[in-house]
Amino acid sequence: MTAQTGGADTYYVPEQSRLAICLATSVAVLILGAAIGLNQMTFGSGDANWTMLWLGLLGFVVILAVWFRQTIVENRAGMNSAQLKHSYALGMQWFIFSEVMFFACFFGVLFYVRNLAGPWLGGEGAKLMTNEVLWPAFDFSWPMQTTPQEAVGGVADQIPANTGTFVGPKESVSWSGIPLINTILLLTSSVTCHFAHVALKADKRSAFNLWLGLTLILGFTFVGFQAYEYYEAYNHLGLTLEAGIYGSTFFILTGFHGFHVCMGAIMLSVQWLRSTVGGHFTPDDQFGFEASSWYWHFVDVVWVGLFLFVYIL
C-alpha cells in the first residue's frame, strides 16, 4: 500500500486486492451449493446434500469479515480522506435504497393480490367467468383461509392440472399479540439507537455502549418473538408456506424482514464490540456505527409498513 496513498489529502486508491475474487468465488460456491441441494430436494431422488452450501457460506462470511476489517484498519491508519469517507456513505445510502426497492416489490405483490388478483379470482368485475368456470364456489376474503383449490374440492377436482396442494390456514395471525409487542420493541430500539448516536457525538463512551447494548437486546428479543410466532403459525394456526397466497405473502414479507433485522443486529453487534473491546470511534469518525444505524432505522420503518399492511389491515 504505497503508491497512491497520500494520507488524508489525496483520494486513496487501493493497491491490487485479493478480496474481491475470493468473495466472488465463495459466492459462486454458495449458490452452486444451494442450487444443487435444492434440486436434489425437489427433483432428485436421494437426500439433499448441502455441504457445498455450507462451505460457500463459511467462505463468504470469513472473507466479508476480512474485507471489513481491512477497511477499518485503513481508516484507523488515517488513509481515508473526507472524500473517501463520503464515498462509503454514499455507497451505504444507495445500498439501502436498493433494499427499499426489494421490499417495495413484495409489498406490491401483497397489494396486487389483495386488491386485484384476489377479487378477480372471486369473480369480481369482468372476471365473472374465471370464477364460474375455473374456481366455482370460491369467495375471496382476506386473510384467505380457503384457497381456490379447496373451494373446488381439492387438487383432483380443479381444472388446471399439475399445481401442488394448497390448504389454507385455520386461523390468521392477530395483530394484537406478538406483533404489537414486536412493534413496540422495534420502535423503542430505534429510539435507543438514536440516543446511542447522540451519546457518541457527545463523546460519552459508556452511555453509548449502554444505549447500543440496549438496542441490541431489543433487536434480538424481536427476533426471538418472531421465531416464536413462526412456531405458533406452523404448529397451531396451520399457517405455512403451502397455505396459499396468504401464507406466501405473510412469510416472504415477515421472513425477509426478519432476516434483515438479524443482519442489522449483527452489524450493530460488531459496532458494539468495536466500541467496548476495541475502543473504536470518535465523536467525528464513526461511520461503521452510523451506517449500521441507518440500516437499523430502515428496518424499523419497513416493520411499521408490515405491521399495518400484513397484520392490522
Binding site: 396486487y112 393480490v113 383449490q149 406466501s248
Partner: peptide
C-alpha cells in the same frame, strides 16, 4: 418451485399474471 408457495399459482390464490407485472 421449491417451498410450496403460490405466488404465481391461482390454485393457491396467487396469479401468473402477477409474475408479468413484477
Amino acid at each position: 418451485i421449491h417451498f410450496g408457495t403460490s405466488f404465481f399459482n391461482a390454485a393457491g390464490g396467487g396469479d401468473p399474471v402477477l409474475f408479468q407485472h413484477v
